[in-house]
């Protein structure tokens, strides 16, 4: 009577199965940790906008202050997308007939807003206030990245809760004098080398501490700070 016998090599297979069994959970963990992270899923979102507006030109090359257009940022929680009027402050005169400006002109004529696509979305259950951050020396660049170098704006930071907490736990590296809010290159010591660079960096560090002391910055980590 024949009886099923496992082949001899099945004994050698077992350590392999054990190895796979040990690897799979680690694999899955890492896959979830990296693959499902906002750094993968959220960062780099670069929607096509109705108007090919270039931040690199306006904010970078022209050096226009961010607040020229996003004028509510210091007074309100929301940093406003500018009204068409704001564009037309200049573009009534400058290149008014440019095809790139057609949607702007159309909006200006019929009074219907331009439908910009929102890039930076903080979940609706989190209450983020621009004014609270901006008026305490957190610069635009900290959350939005080098807007002044972006032809088309994309999300450069994960905007995840952990990312918020990193700064709330250690705000100092993201502080700057309020006067340098919109200065994208502040604190970089660009073009400096050696001792001069060290000196500049020491000075930036000093200024960050000063700002922290000036505004008594001790960010809350309570749940209700953001979820209320």
């Amino acid at each position: 009577m024949s009886r099923f016998l496992f082949p001899k090599w099945s004994n050698a297979l077992l350590p392999l199965i054990a190895l796979v069994g040990a690897t799979v959970p680690i694999y899955v963990l890492y896959f979830v940790a990296f693959g499902f992270s906002p750094k993968t899923l959220e960062v780099g979102y670069q929607p096509v906008q109705p108007v090919p507006f270039s931040h690199a030109l306006h904010a970078g090359e022209l050096g226009m202050d961010c607040r020229y257009c996003h004028n509510t940022v210091e007074r309100a929680d929301h940093a406003a997308i500018p009204a068409t009027q704001t564009c037309m402050n200049c573009h009534t005169l400058i290149k008014p007939e440019s095809p790139k400006l057609e949607p702007v002109q159309a909006s200006y004529q019929d009074g219907l807003p331009i439908l910009w696509t929102k890039v930076h979305h903080v979940a609706d259950y989190a209450y983020f206030s621009h004014q609270a951050h901006v008026n305490r020396g957190v610069g635009c660049v900290s959350c939005h990245g080098r807007i002044d170098q972006m032809e088309v704006v994309y999300q450069s930071q994960p905007l995840s809760m952990g990312w918020c907490l990193d700064c709330h736990r250690n705000p100092e590296p993201n502080l700057r004098p309020v006067s340098e809010l919109t200065n994208m290159s502040w604190g970089l010591a660009l073009g400096l080398e050696g001792e001069a660079r060290d000196k500049a960096e020491a000075e930036f560090a000093q200024q960050r501490i000063e700002v922290q002391n000036l505004y008594h910055i001790n960010p809350s980590e309570n749940c209700s700070t953001c979820h209320r």
């Binding site: 499902f36 906002p38 993968t40 899923l41 959220e42 780099g44 979102y45 609706d124 259950y125 999300q155």
Partner: peptide, 18 residues
């Protein structure tokens, strides 16, 4: 995916209340 921006909408795995 991490190395380049893309116009693709961000994937929200857990959508609720977002």
């Amino acid at each position: 995916v991490r190395s380049a921006p893309s116009p693709g909408r961000p994937i929200h795995i857990i959508q609720d209340m977002d």
